[in-house]
Structures are given as structure tokens and as C-alpha cells.
């Protein structure tokens, strides 16, 4: 099967996007010893046991779990709150985030801070009150029936969770 050059270029671009996605993997540390699970649930098979302070790369998160890769190349799931992303993100991370901004919004982040309104410290300092926008909020208020519909469409089930003291 031969691919037309334009299609091939497009495919290359898509693969490149995929690569950016996987490069967004984040360096992190396991803060307490725990099992590396083959799947994201408590009864899943153990891949291995990891000691506290194991260096990891976080690949993705789902529910209360994070999929990680160890330095020796093992991948699996650990509890989300047992993983702590490194405090100082690598410079590469911020560059990639900027690229992500270009890809996702079609504009550069630089453009987002010049000539447009925003919510930076400077934007707040130069803000002039806008009561008309505040009044506009009232027009979007949901009716109880709309809220019921929202919840039933998602099968959201209310649960009793006590508000324990910290």
C-alpha cells in the first residue's frame, strides 16, 4: 500500500502529536511503599512491590490511580495519592506545555497575554467594575427540573459522606 505524500505528511504530524502526548509524562516519587498493580483496581495482579522513594514517571491518571513507569521499565498502576510529582517541573515540561497551547488553541500563548483581556495579576490591577456582566449571571440560573435532568442523564447517585474534622 502506498500513501500519497500529503497524507504521509499528515500521518507524520499526527504521530508527532502522539509523541508530544507521551513526552508529557511527569517525573515523580512514590512517597510510601506499595504494590505496582497490573490494572487500576485493588484486587488486580501485583507486577512488583515498590519501596518508598522509588523514582517513577507518571504516564496517566484514572480515578484514584496513576499509571507509572519505573526506572527499570516496568509499568503498572499505583494509588494516586502515593505519588508526588517532583516540585520543580523540568524546563522541557513548560516548553511542551507551551507547544500544547499552540496545538490546542491555534494561537500562541504569547498572543494570549498581549492585547487581550485575561485574569493575570496585571489584568486584575487594571480591572474596571463590570456590573452588567454580574447581572447577566442571573439569566443562566438553572431550574430544579434542569438540574434533575443533568443528574439523571449521568446516573449521578447522591451519597452520605460525613464532614469529618481535619
Amino acid at each position: 500500500m502506498t500513501l500519497k505524500p500529503t497524507f504521509r505528511k499528515l500521518l507524520a504530524a499526527l504521530l508527532c502529536l502522539g509523541a508530544i502526548g507521551s513526552l508529557q509524562a511527569t517525573p515523580a516519587t512514590l512517597i510510601r511503599a506499595g504494590d505496582l498493580k497490573a490494572e487500576a483496581f485493588i484486587d488486580a495482579t501485583n507486577v512488583t512491590s515498590l519501596p518508598a522513594d522509588t523514582a517513577l514517571t507518571v504516564l496517566e491518571s484514572k480515578g484514584g490511580w496513576s499509571r507509572v513507569r519505573t526506572a527499570d521499565g516496568k509499568t503498572g498502576w499505583v494509588r494516586l495519592l502515593n505519588v508526588r510529582v517532583a516540585a520543580a517541573a523540568s524546563p522541557a515540561g513548560s516548553t511542551l506545555a507551551a507547544i500544547g497551547g499552540v496545538v490546542r488553541t491555534g494561537t500562541t500563548k504569547g498572543a494570549a497575554t498581549t492585547g487581550v483581556k485575561g485574569l493575570s495579576k496585571e489584568d486584575i490591577a487594571r480591572s474596571q467594575p463590570n456590573p452588567r456582566e454580574v447581572a447577566r449571571l442571573d439569566t443562566f440560573r438553572s431550574k430544579p427540573a434542569q438540574i434533575n435532568k443533568f443528574a439523571s442523564a449521568r446516573k449521578l447517585k447522591a451519597r452520605d459522606v460525613p464532614e469529618q474534622n481535619p
Binding site: 496513576s66 497551547g101 495579576k121
Partner: peptide, 27 residues
């Protein structure tokens, strides 16, 4: 209580951790 995954907010804070120093997150 509202039926959502309890780990939604912790995941967002994890996202913030991975975006330290990124444009748009300063404030």
C-alpha cells in the same frame, strides 16, 4: 456526595504540579 469520583480534585492538583512554571498558571 454528589456522586462524582472523589479523586477528581486530587487529579487536578496533580495536573497543576506538572504545569509548574507554565504560561497561564502564574496567578
Amino acid at each position: 456526595r454528589a456522586g462524582y469520583d472523589p479523586y477528581g480534585l486530587p487529579r487536578v492538583i496533580n495536573l497543576y504540579a506538572s504545569k509548574a512554571g507554565s504560561s497561564g498558571f502564574e496567578l
